[in-house]
């Protein structure tokens, strides 16, 4: 019995080593390939033909599909945050600061990150699954043989559309969170909309707005890019469609946090 146990342990250890090595190898290979893919996609932004119609179509689809989810989430975030913060600020007699605190928290951090994560789930997975399905069913090849560059028509348009649309969605998320916050404040006390807006914007400065807006462009770019990359590199078989969608969500969600961290570090240094 003991011998069998020892043998099993050795086999298991070997597999763990191999798994860890494969994971790191795979990660670095993936990063290298993603960097190469990014270069090719960015090149397409500046190479004619420029696919304006497809860009507008993709922008509309991405925005339209995510708008309701983003607005509801933003609204609930504003509502919940206000209900959580109100008793704490009341203890210090600082209730008048509530609109400003909510505004800073939402605009600077929560709005972009929450909206970014929702977009990672909604947009990146959608793009990943769509392109993977196109790849598996040879639609990408069909496009290429009919004289169309799939990287330009399919990939660059989606990446650019996500880069433009995600910041707009974040603005909507922020706006709806303000609405939620205003309603929640009015549960506890009467506050006019003018006073709420004044108090909120009094505490906001360009230092809050500009970096928060800039990072949403990066969120959008990488959400679109990772979705396209995972879909474009899907292997044959329907199984790979699900895998592409799933890994697009995981990778782009992680990337949202990494970009956020990098921005916080840069802002703190500046």
């Amino acid at each position: 019995m003991r011998k069998v146990h020892v043998r099993n342990f050795k086999v298991r250890k070997f597999h763990v080593d191999e798994e860890v090595r494969n994971f790191y190898n795979g990660m670095f290979i993936d990063l290298g390939e993603l960097a190469f893919f990014t270069g090719k996609v960015v090149k397409q932004f500046f190479q004619p033909p420029f696919e304006y119609k497809e860009l507008i179509k993709q922008g509309y689809l991405i925005g339209n599909k995510s708008f309701s989810l983003i607005s509801v989430t933003g609204f609930i975030m504003g509502l919940v945050l206000t209900m959580q913060m109100n008793p704490i600020l009341s203890n210090f007699g600082a209730q008048t600061l509530l609109p400003g605190v909510i505004a800073v928290a939402m605009v600077r951090e929560l709005g972009p990150v929450i909206a970014g994560l929702i977009c990672a789930g909604k947009i990146s997975s959608g793009i990943g699954a769509e392109i993977a399905a196109m790849s598996v069913t040879e639609q990408i090849d069909a496009m290429e043989v009919s004289g169309t560059k799939p990287l330009g028509f399919v990939v660059a348009t989606r990446v650019l559309a996500a880069t433009i649309v995600v910041p707009i969605l974040v603005i909507f998320a922020d706006a709806f969170s303000f609405l939620g916050a205003y309603l929640a404040i009015n549960v506890f006390e009467n506050m006019s909309i003018a006073l709420f807006v004044n108090s909120a914007f009094d505490m906001l400065s360009f230092k809050d707005l500009i970096p928060a807006t800039i990072k949403t462009f990066f969120f959008g770019f990488f959400i679109g890019l990772i979705g396209c990359y995972k879909g474009y590199n899907a292997r044959s078989g329907t199984e790979s469609v699900g895998y592409a969608a799933n890994s697009a969500v995981v990778s782009s969600s992680l990337t949202v946090f990494v970009i956020d961290l990098i921005f916080v570090l840069i802002i703190n240094i500046l």
């Binding site: 639609q139 090849d141 069909a142 496009m143 043989v145 004289g147």
Partner: peptide, 14 residues
């Protein structure tokens, strides 16, 4: 490629 048509196995309709 304009002069060479390719019929894919599954049709590959968009």
């Amino acid at each position: 490629r304009k002069k060479v048509g390719y019929l894919f196995q599954g049709g590959a309709l968009y």
